[in-house]
Design a protein around this nucleic acid. Structure first.
Lengths: 238, 238
DNA sequence: GCGGCGACTTGAGCAGGATCAATTCTTGGC
DNA sequence: GCCAAGAATTGATCCTGCTCAAGTCGCCGC
């Protein structure tokens, strides 16, 4: 029996797996810049909108959300980041970060000071290509969520979200079918452009239908292919 | 009286303005790669999802939309591109384009073959920084629309959309308060995660309230500051 | 100029998700 | 261990935006 309760604390097979978003050995980067380590506790901000933009970050362990804010106080969760994910890239080219990054679990983060990253790109042409590709990947991820939000019903969105979590867990070597959500219902709701009650109901209903089992934040996907089929139906059915 | 009907055919002050997204002189790029010119008629695709990724594109004249597609046939407009905007960047790092780009008006496009762009980055360090910044900018734009879609009512979204069009027109030296929409109601609706009837009603209602005047695709913003205030209210009011 | 098609508007009725509210369950602080 | 605060669930009701439908308008081809 697996132990999803300590996911973030299991060491995956490759010791430098946390650098895979950039596809590079961290040690190679250390030759070009001072890579420091930062620890965050639940609820702490890695950075806030408006703070001077000084670095990119790689998640080594833990879990974070990014939040977009408007002048008039509206707030939107725009994504969740886990081991291996890059943070701060959206603020490249600005003097200050453009959004908030908040720890949803205790985190260990590698800080890559930014001007040095640019410099390193000149010496490691590979790095430049990787960084650009990582940015493009981020655009594609955001757009595929726009597609989901613009075209799927509440329940389909939630199912899609669970399948996405599963896929990301699988890529890190964790169980795709049994995991603990690190974010609250309200964060999922904001991300999917819903209300937390709606997310709660959707989860309950997916459970009733036998697709999943939910107990607070512990989720089991009982039949992933069937769940995929359920999401795929969304268009052909109506 | 201005003549918004021919916006796309007016030459703006700076002859190389169409390159401003990359902040570079196109002639400088020509030294490193073969920049070719492509013309498109309304309805033609600049590229389609699945076609081999070979180039980035700069819009010199005309107007396009980008569409995200799902395997099961769902479709979502993810953005609109006009003079000076970059296209294709979302597909960097892939073998094939990940979305469709469709002309909504006759277009003239500059094609920047991709591997050569990467090569040019090595010789013009400035270009690398600009390209990366352009990608980051695209992420921020997408996320600010996620915020709008996730937090604003239909009518507020439409108003925000009009203000965005106005701002982009202003940046190109056109009138921000009187313009012709190049896309149909259905495209606006998809982009804002609404239905075309809802967009139509929102426009009519904004007109009733005296914020704008609409006649088919011709739009006048009668009081931009007031319209901004109307959008800004969205949170404080509820 | 006329006919036909597609884009847009508008209305009526419906429904999916929001809102408001009550309750249970967890968790952390003392 | 107990209490308080917060997170999640669930129910009842409301309302925004969707659906279905009819009708208008403008434009292109002939």
């Amino acid at each position: 029996m697996d132990t999803p309760f300590i996911f973030n604390h299991i060491e995956p097979s490759h010791p430098n797996a946390a650098g895979f978003t950039l596809g590079l050995d961290i040690d190679q980067l250390r030759g070009h810049m001072l890579v420091t380590r930062r620890k965050l506790k639940v609820g702490q901000h890695l950075y806030r909108a408006g703070q001077p933009f000084t670095a990119l970050y790689l998640v080594h362990a833990g879990f974070l959300k990014t939040c977009e804010l408007s002048e008039d106080g509206r707030e939107q969760v725009t994504g969740f980041r886990m081991r291996g994910d890059l943070l701060g890239a959206e603020s490249i080219g600005l003097a200050a970060y453009s959004c908030d990054a908040v720890a949803l679990d205790d985190c260990e983060i590698w800080e890559l000071p930014y001007p040095p990253v640019l410099g390193a790109c000149l010496h490691i042409p590979e790095l430049q290509a990787r960084l650009t590709a990582a940015l493009a990947e981020e655009i594609r991820r955001d757009r595929s969520w726009m597609l989901a939000i613009g075209t799927l019903s509440a329940e389909h969105r939630v199912a899609t979200f669970l399948l996405d979590v599963a896929a990301r867990h699988a890529k890190l070597g964790f169980s795709p079918s049994h995991f603990i959500l690190r974010m609250g219902r309200a964060d999922i709701a904001s991300f999917l452009a819903l209300k937390h009650e709606t997310v709660s109901r959707a989860l309950s209903h997916l459970e009733e239908q036998g697709y999943i089992s939910v107990l607070r934040r512990e989720v089991k996907l009982l039949n992933i292919p069937l769940l995929r089929a359920y999401v795929g139906q969304s268009c052909t059915v109506h």
